[in-house]
Write a protein that binds this DNA or RNA. Structure first.
Length: 572
RNA sequence: GGGCCUGUAGCUCAAUGGUCAGAGCAGGGCGCUCAUAACGCCUUGGUUGGGGGUUCGAGUCCCUCCGGGCCUACCA
């Protein structure tokens, strides 16, 4: 039994995420966690909300709430939706937790003691009307290059030129529109990543099996231009982990907090500590996942994230870990995803374009979305959600291939033998061929799941379902029954056992349907198949089952058209 | 501007430099009647974005052009 630590990139707190966010991290992480648990491994699966930063403060202000209250509420909302999608986190934490405050300050202090923190005085735009420093992109003005009047302080969206806020003509706050801005001096802490460059490069180079997407992004940041740069890890904000604290090896940082990207990944660790606290366990319980000197030496750590998160997970966070000079667990494998597009364009949170997680669940149960999203996961390039494809895929794969298989087996049995696994008889060559095929396919499926090849795993699973239909079609127990009822009984017994096997194999993708199938088969035997012949004799003759209701209903054309219209425009 | 990814059948995607470029869906035909008008079998469909090159051999490697996307360090 292996020990597997799994983290999903933590979703930002300001609002409900769309399906693109879901498929890029939380959902594939859940697939992997469920699979590894099914295989009998000890799994720790951690996610959290990322609660600090300017957008959180602004969103809270807009909602007319104190930021702590706003974040607590939104955390509750996101946790509820995560449950709705059956995301099986061992703990869904909060980056604003006391645990994260303590750990973030701990890492900062260690880095300071190692000489890896620099104090830098710089000038930043301050908006008097908003009473806050503004990040570059929260300043708007006229582009000096093309004259576009809504250019942002980091880049002009119109001509794509890189800008500095001071380049803008007639700069104004994007928050309030105020032009009452001034450049103010402010002191910040920088993480001296340049000092760690060689060690980071060496570490990245040792990860030869990582996805191209992951390593290419890391190497670009390491080597491009002047190479890896030091990074500011504090901000002039009120909401966050205070940068000045007892034992801090610096002074004069009162009123400042750590940058979200410094404290967010630390929440992976803190979230595990929160898990221990929530279960009344001591520190050793979480440290055995994170401290290689306290039991984590045999842990395999896998991170899941969208491509936009890669630099922070390949460089900044490892710089924090390595720089601390303490035996914390480093990530072993980073699975990164491209983006999911929506019907010819991008999902857009600001424009409300596309399907958001809460809306998705209000339309259809989690399994429908899980199946489509995972079987179309954007692993190699950006991929595309269209309603036609979603409808076709769900109707065909889930309703016709799997759902109907369960239906035809159980209903046939009920009508000919009653709702007990029939006894007697022998299966024939076709059953042997089926078992041989499944033997190959199940091992291939395992290989893809272990390699986190999500699409390939989905395709293999579907082929496993299809094999059941092929068997029934060629064995034709409904015909055999007329001549040799005992033989038909054996075939049906095999069919019912296939339903149980499929429930087990499918659990990581469609956990609700899996549970319903097992319940219908009257068993809680979820043991992963060894030799297939054995796995297909778990349900003995005489075992009672129930004929389940329709497992997956089909999506009608009218519904699809209705949804298409509903989600094309602005979210209301 | 720079870097990276990407372009394969009507659609969504596969293919360690090595048989005739494969699947699923959609389309066509046949079969079956247990089943959610479901299932199975067969089948149509490709100058692998264009052009050039390396190689015994290129979807794959190189150059170039065209299209799509992402990143570019203060959004997260």
């Amino acid at each position: 039994m292996a020990r597997i630590l799994i983290t999903s990139a933590i979703p930002y707190i300001n609002g409900i995420k769309h399906l693109g966010n879901l498929v890029g991290s939380q959902l594939p992480a859940d697939l992997y966690a469920r699979y590894m648990r099914m295989r009998g491994n000890e799994v720790m699966f951690i996610c959290a909300t990322d609660e600090h930063g300017t957008p959180a403060e602004l969103a809270a202000a807009k909602a007319g709430k104190p930021v702590a209250e706003y974040c607590a509420e939104m955390h509750g909302v996101q946790a509820e939706i995560a449950r709705g999608f059956r995301l099986s986190f061992d703990h869904f934490g909060r980056s604003s937790s006391a645990r994260n405050h303590r750990l973030t300050q701990h890492f900062a202090r260690r880095l300071g003691e190692q000489g890896l923190i620099a104090e830098v005085v710089e000038k930043q735009m301050f908006s008097r009307a908003d009473d806050r420093f503004l990040p570059d992109r929260y300043i708007e003005g006229t582009c000096p290059n093309c004259g576009y009047d809504r250019a942002r302080g980091d880049q002009c969206e119109n001509c794509t030129k890189q800008l500095d806020p001071t380049d803008l003509i007639n700069p104004r706050s994007a928050v309030s529109g105020s032009t009452d801005l001034e450049l103010r001096e402010t002191k910040h802490l920088y993480l001296r990543q340049r000092v760690l460059k060689e060690r980071l490069a060496e570490w990245i180079d040792s990860k030869t099996g990582w996805p191209v997407l992951t390593t290419s992004i890391a190497k670009k940041w390491l080597n491009d231009g002047e190479g890896l740069q030091d990074r500011g890890i504090t901000r002039d904000l009120a909401w966050g982990v205070p940068a000045q604290f007892a034992g801090a090896p610096w002074q004069g940082m009162e009123g400042k907090v750590f940058y979200v990207w410094f404290d967010a990944p630390i929440e992976y660790i803190a979230g595990t500590a929160e898990w221990a606290d929530a279960h009344g366990l001591d520190d050793a319980a979480w440290e055995r996942w994170w401290r290689t000197d306290k039991g984590a030496h045999d842990v395999t750590y896998v991170q899941f994230m969208g491509k936009d998160n890669v630099p922070f997970h390949t460089l900044s966070f490892p710089a924090t870990i390595i720089g601390s000079d303490e035996p914390w667990k480093l990530v072993d494998y980073i699975k990164s995803f491209n983006y999911l597009n929506y019907d010819g364009g991008q999902f857009s949170t600001s424009q409300g374009r596309g399907v958001f997680m809460d809306q998705a669940l209000s339309i259809l149960p989690a399994d429908y979305w899980r199946w489509w999203l995972l079987s179309h996961a954007p692993e190699n390039s950006d991929s595309e959600f269209t309603w036609e494809n979603f409808q076709a895929s769900v109707n065909k794969d889930l309703a016709d291939v799997l759902g109907n298989f369960v239906s035809r087996v159980t209903k046939f049995c009920r009508s000919k033998f009653g709702e007990l696994v029939p006894e007697g008889g022998q299966t024939g060559e076709r059953a042997a061929a089926l078992i041989a095929e499944l033997e190959t396919r199940v091992r291939a499926y395992e290989g893809h799941m272990e390699a986190m090849e999500v699409r390939k795993a989905a395709a293999e699973l579907r082929a496993i379902w299809v094999a059941g239909n092929e068997y029934l079609q060629s064995a034709a127990p409904w015909t055999v029954f007329k001549e040799d009822p005992e033989r038909a009984a054996a075939m049906t017994r095999l069919g019912l056992n296939l339903v149980r096997l499929y429930a087990v194999l499918s659990e990581p993708f469609i956990p609700d349907a899996s549970a319903r199938m097992l319940a219908a088969m009257g068993t809680d035997d979820r043991s992963w198949p060894g030799p297939i012949a054995e796995a297909l004799s778990v349900l003995p003759a005489g075992h009672a089952f129930e004929t389940p209701e329709v497992l997956f209903r089909k999506i009608a054309d009218e519904e699809r058209e209705d949804w298409q219209k509903r989600f094309a425009g602005v979210r209301t």
